[in-house]
């Protein structure tokens, strides 16, 4: 996984709460392998809805933006990792929001996408910031957990474990394999302690 340290880019303001994973990628687009690319499906239906805020994705001022700013409970709903694929393949590397759906946030980190939590008022401030709205520069620094827009600096939150993983580009599976002996020992003890846990039949 590609490490995430700093990002110097522009932002896409999406002043919407509860952006669910069905919006991030409608279910009908999930049949293809990851290698085929999911970027074209990002917010596919919402950005075509007349007057919807998601049209910002197609605004030339925000072209190439790697940061998305949204309201609370971003990524709620289904566990589809394709929602993260759609964001990542579109080029988004960081989503800033007051809160995230639990499964979405976990999926994001596994794909090198930073879910940065800012208090509601600060997200509002970002969403109204002239630089953000105009497609001006924004900087995200993960080690210091800061976001810089013009002369404003915001301190964001992230689970320490996720920060470590993102900064190092670590892969869970390789790490888990180093615990192979513990896992084997646990499985043997557990089978004796809970004989009923094995499927009968």
């Amino acid at each position: 996984m590609k490490p995430f340290v700093t990002l110097s880019t522009r932002a896409c303001p999406l002043p919407v709460a509860n952006v669910d994973t069905d919006q991030l990628i409608p279910a009908r687009f999930m049949k293809q392998p990851r290698s085929a690319g999911y970027g074209a499906f990002l917010l596919h239906d919402l950005r075509r809805e007349p007057g919807n805020a998601a049209a910002v994705l197609d605004d030339p001022r925000h072209a190439g933006a790697q940061v998305l700013v949204a309201r609370r409970n971003f990524g709620c709903g289904s566990s589809r990792e394709a929602a993260v694929y759609a964001l990542a393949d579109h080029g988004i590397r960081c989503v800033i929001a007051p809160s995230f759906g639990d499964i979405f946030a976990s999926n994001a980190v596994k794909n090198g996408l930073l879910p940065a939590r800012l208090p509601e008022e600060q997200v509002d401030e970002l969403l109204q910031d002239a630089l953000v709205l105009g497609g001006g520069p924004i900087e995200v620094d993960l080690p210091s957990q800061t976001i810089r827009v013009g002369n404003k600096v915001f301190a964001f939150e992230i689970e320490p474990v996720w920060k470590t993983q993102l900064v190092n580009g670590w892969d869970d599976i390789d790490m888990t394999r180093s615990y192979a002996a513990e896992i084997e020992r646990f499985a043997a003890q557990d089978a004796a302690a809970r004989p009923w846990a094995a499927p009968a039949g």
């Binding site: 566990s79 990792e81 394709a82 993260v84 976990s106 869970d172 888990t176």
Partner: peptide, 10 residues
């Protein structure tokens, strides 16, 4: 609980 594809692979 529900998990994403990377966790399913794990």
């Amino acid at each position: 609980f529900g998990i994403g594809a990377s966790e399913v692979a794990h």
